[in-house]
């Protein structure tokens, strides 16, 4: 299946802003995070097609999947 992955803020650095990925059926949101070597502790928000989701949510063909880090400075 084909999923568009969008990264936000400093998750973009050394990776990409958005990329189309071919993923096996049953891939979860968390598996993509791990695959990108993103520490789950640094993740703030996960969204599929503009709806919030969890690490356990299974991705579907044609999904747009966005990953946001925690931003904490003031």
């Amino acid at each position: 299946m084909r999923v568009q992955v969008k990264l936000f803020a400093f998750f973009r650095e050394g990776r990409f802003v958005k990329e189309d990925k071919e993923l096996p059926e049953g891939t979860t949101a968390g598996m993509v995070v791990d695959d990108l070597k993103i520490d789950r502790e640094e993740v703030g928000v996960l969204m599929i097609n503009s709806r919030h989701c969890k690490f356990e949510t299974v991705l579907q063909d044609d999904d747009i999947y966005a990953i946001f880090p925690v931003i904490g400075g003031g």
């Binding site: 502790e41 640094e42 993740v43 703030g44 928000v45 919030h52 946001f68 925690v70 931003i71 904490g72 400075g73 003031g74």
Partner: peptide, 16 residues
């Protein structure tokens, strides 16, 4: 609650 799902943040001061 949405933006900070964890109870605490990273210990080091962020670069700003």
């Amino acid at each position: 609650n949405t933006l900070y799902p964890q109870t605490s943040g990273p210990p080091e001061a962020p670069k700003v």
